[in-house]
Nucleic acid binder design. Sequence first.
DNA 1: ACACAATGTCAAATATAGTATACATTGATT
DNA 2: AATCAATGTATACTATATTTGACATTGTGT
Lengths: 83, 83
Amino acid sequence: MGQTHINNNIRTLRFHKGEMTQQTLADEVGVTRQTIVAIEKGKYSPTLELAFRIAGIFEVPLTEIFTYNSAEDKFKKRNQNLR
Amino acid sequence: MGQTHINNNIRTLRFHKGEMTQQTLADEVGVTRQTIVAIEKGKYSPTLELAFRIAGIFEVPLTEIFTYNSAEDKFKKRNQNLR
DNA sequence: ACACAATGTCAAATATAGTATACATTGATT
DNA sequence: AATCAATGTATACTATATTTGACATTGTGT
């Protein structure tokens, strides 16, 4: 899949939350730091469950952290003329 | 992982959306019917990207389809005394 | 300049999401 | 009762999310 069509502002939120480090965020949501790095950079799309956990830590709604750019979605592009 | 802690009302939404079938929903979001079945039944947690696509089809916010039951989350349970 | 904490990155392994195929069951229609 | 569409389920397979471990880089403090 390579890159996703999902943007996030985890990095910003980490700093709002008292300079929270990648490692401590990783610990709090129960994944490794590499996973946080990959998600922050949009390398892949996290599981919905993980996304909810992250939102829980920052105490903001999921959709305020992650936004979906449907315009870039290849599958939708392929199908939008069929609908 | 077995079962997740995420609930959804996809089934209800399918019927609100003119008796939309599992198969057509699957086609519209670009996965197989089996994937829709598994998600409807909470067998596993979909990718955030797929969750967004489903929300897009029903034209409702993601958080209105999927809700997270943090109380049942094993990882959170394990850690709630540490925070 | 040295040390250290935080971050970026890479490659190989494991776990889980998603596919393909096939078959059983239920409900509606004729 | 036969047919057909929609759904549930199972198993083996593929793709991708996540882990593990290791090392490079950047920035800050001393």
